[in-house]
Simulated scan of single mutants.
Amino acid sequence: MDRAPGRSVRLKLTLSYAGFLMVAGALLLAAVWVFLLRYVPDRAMLINPDDRPDGVFPVRSVLQDVFAPRAAAVLAFLLVFGLVGGWILAGRMLAPLTRITDATRMATHGSLSHRIRLPGRKDEFRELADAFDAMLARLEAHVAEQQRFAANASHELRTPLAISKALIDVARTDPSADTGEVIDRLHAVNTRAIDLTEALLLLSRANQRSFTREHVDLSLMAEEATETLLPLAEKHGVTIETRGDIAPTIGSRALLLQLTTNLVHNAIVHNLPEQGGVWVTTTVRPGTVVLTVENTGEKLTAQRVSTLTEPFQRGTERIHTDHAGVGLGLAIVKTIAQAHDGTLTLTPRSGGGIRITVELPHPHFRTSPARRHPLTGRTTGAVPPER
């Protein structure tokens, strides 16, 4: 924003200090003058009458002649002292603000690695500096994450486009090529590109928190996701067990269903080749509701597990190549959880596989008559209060 030039804060503080000092000095001199007028007599008898013919000394008139020029000199001194001292004090007081301003200018030019690190005990300026340092750290991490994400997304999108171009070139240069096979491969590559694009859009939507919040039962989301993916699990010999309590929370039903579906889908496709298992549990804790998804599979290290929520990171080899995914499943889950003020925790299981826990805020629900879900038949007894 363009602003017209004005007085600096240091000059304003200096003038304020000097003005306050002048007012205080003037009030003090006025008090002294009132005291003299009230308690000092007009005349006094001299001890030595030879000094004046009438033997009377005019005290008040003499004091008036002496007091006025002395008072003016004192006020002039206070003015100079207030301006000089106020300028020095204002400079010392505003020195931290100057460092903060310099850091802000560096940040506006793209230098997010600079930190103020203002020394000294806690006060308003140091609280502002610490908050600014924390903001710079978050911005730096966010920018780095966005840069990695953009690079990875570009790489992932370039791959299906390059494959499509190669297939088209082969079909154009080789008339004897099997057209049906080329079309099938193009269809598969195009489907993967569409899935990746939709996942990127969903990730962006969750990041912006541009969704309507409503009351949602997380246990119903778990059962709906399980029912949807049950054919996939049965096809590949993975058993799914769903159990737990009613888990009410507030958020986007579509996004929370996507979160649950991604977790269950990941648990199925990252599993043992035969006789794998998936366990989906919902529990209620003080102030929060918890969704836990566990599965069997290869053993993972804690270091490897900590990277799985990064975009385009994949864990163990999938049991089937027909569900290769786009590497955004857990990244989307993490973003949705954070958009709902929740947390995502990944823990490797000792026997192999992984345990994923999503913890979301628990609103204040009232108890109501039991109702039955139309798809699952599950009886629920907690509904949101009417508004």
Score class of each variant (00 low, 15 high):
G120S: 06
K122I: 02
D130H: 04
F132V: 06
K12C: 11
T101Y: 09
S204Y: 08
T281W: 08
P374C: 04
L63K: 06
L229R: 13
D102R: 10
M1T: 02
A71R: 12
N295G: 10
V333G: 09
P53V: 09
R372P: 00
W279M: 12
A267W: 14
H362V: 03
A71W: 11
F132H: 10
R318K: 14
A68G: 08
F149Y: 09
R3I: 00
M135F: 13
A206H: 02
L256K: 03
G6F: 02
A144N: 13
V66F: 04
L229W: 09
A26C: 04
K235D: 14
A71F: 12
S111T: 12
M221L: 10
L201C: 13
L218I: 07
G110I: 00
W87L: 11
P311N: 05
P175I: 00
T98G: 10
F211T: 03
G86W: 10
A233D: 14
V280L: 09
W33L: 12
A331M: 04
V66A: 01
R105Y: 08
G342N: 07
T380D: 15
Q258R: 13
R185I: 04
V80N: 00
I332L: 14
E127T: 14
V56S: 07
V189W: 00
S113E: 01
P273L: 05
L200Q: 13
Q64C: 07
R10E: 15
P53K: 10
R138G: 01
R99F: 10
T296L: 06
V66T: 03
A267D: 10
T380R: 15
A30G: 10
E127W: 09
P53Y: 06
E274W: 01
K165P: 00
G85M: 11
D322M: 12
P58G: 02
D217I: 15
S176Q: 13
L157Y: 08
K235I: 14
D2K: 13
P5R: 07
L263P: 10
D65A: 15
E298H: 01
E181R: 15
G351M: 03
R121Y: 00
A254I: 12
G55Q: 01
V32D: 02
E294Q: 04
L112P: 07
M45W: 03
M135P: 08
D130Q: 04
M106V: 07
V59S: 00
S368W: 06
Q146K: 02
L63V: 07
F20E: 04
R115T: 13
L218G: 12
T249Q: 01
T376Y: 01
T307F: 01
E359M: 07
R253W: 00
H142V: 01
L375I: 02
G85A: 13
L257N: 11
L13G: 06
H215Y: 04
I183M: 12
M45G: 00
R121K: 09
L232A: 09
R158A: 15
S113N: 04
Q147S: 03
E227K: 12
M135K: 12
F132Y: 07
A331L: 09
A153M: 06
S61V: 05
G329P: 11
F77H: 01
W279N: 15
L203Q: 12
